[in-house]
Simulated scan of single mutants.
Amino acid sequence: MSAPIAHGGGITAAAAAFGGRPEDWLDLSTGINPCPVALPDIPARVWHRLPDRHLVDAARRAARDYYGSGEILPLPVPGTQSVIQLLPRLMAGSSVAAMTDSRVAVVSPTYGEYTRAFAAAGFAVDAVGDIAAIGEEHRLAVVVNPNNPDGRAWPAKMLIALHDRMKSQNGLLVVDEAFGDADPALSLAARAEELSNLVIFRSFGKFFGLAGLRLGFAIAEGDILDRFEEWLGPWSVSGPALSLADSLLRQDVSAIRRRIDERSSGLHGVLTGAGLRIAGGTTLFTVVADSRASDIYTHLCRHHILVRKFDYARDWLRFGLAPDPAADRRLGEALQRFER
């Protein structure tokens, strides 16, 4: 069994190591909107009953309209991590070459669970630096767009060309758009009907600030979604999650985008004011490159501020958004105390 991947979060462990109560820490280690949306009313029956089909269908229609996926009704899933785990099973059961002959390309560095899931299932995984390095030997390719953690983005036309190339070699393209809500122009959802060898994953909790809901959506042609639904089993997504999706995906989200943009500007001001070099990111997180990254990380932990460090890029730190200007000032003051 492979070792677990260190993700963002982990305030409990950080507080155990550096002191303080978890609730008093400033968690900047994730790429989640720190200003969660106001929750609409959830009818009492939704809590009382198992999630019936009408709740699923309503959430799927709302997601179709929100993502612009045409005739495709996106499948609600209990967090996109749940379907990442199913990709090896999808590949093994598809018309692609036998598992022993199949290679997977993951444009890297990126979210580590893709490589982990395929490697654990026995697939050969190639970490490639760009989509141009995806070759004829690959039967599935993963592109996170925009990418986590460096924020690289590929235009839709480039990914469509990659899809067509993958299809010509009997392969699948998986595009993870977990951070795509803030820049809808990057999304392939509106083209999904005509791209039969494409699977798109969308996160719900990051943009709406409701990561604890554990909700995402998969967009693909019907047979792939049917298999995902079968493998996930009945009632895989809770009734309250479905009800919230139906309500929130139908609302005007422009105010959410403006708030995220404001918080992102605040973070950039703090980081540049502290003399840190911004190396990438999206509106939901920023990556800085600094040879003192490990020392800065420890220094911030001592001030009960958690950011994300990386074992594969030891000069990187990823900063998520702070919830308000007061938290920006708290971060800025801690960075100013760092001994250079």
Rank of each mutant, 00 (worst) to 15 (best):
P184Y: 06
R227M: 11
D290G: 03
Q85G: 08
R165E: 04
S291T: 15
L87P: 03
R45D: 12
D57W: 04
F285W: 13
F285M: 09
A59E: 02
G222H: 11
L284A: 09
R45C: 09
L188W: 07
P155G: 10
L335S: 05
G112S: 10
A218L: 11
N170M: 07
C301P: 00
F179M: 15
V77Q: 03
H304R: 15
S203K: 05
F217M: 08
E71I: 09
L300C: 09
G9C: 14
E193Q: 15
N148T: 11
G171V: 10
A59G: 04
A98W: 02
D164M: 07
W25G: 07
P149Y: 07
R214S: 13
L271M: 13
D328I: 09
P240V: 15
V174N: 01
S203N: 13
G320W: 07
T272M: 14
G239H: 05
R337W: 00
Y67H: 13
P146D: 05
W154E: 09
D130R: 13
V128F: 04
R49P: 00
A327W: 02
D101P: 01
R318F: 01
F310P: 01
S29L: 08
V83H: 01
G266P: 06
V128K: 03
L198G: 05
A38C: 05
N33A: 12
D52M: 09
E23M: 11
Q169M: 10
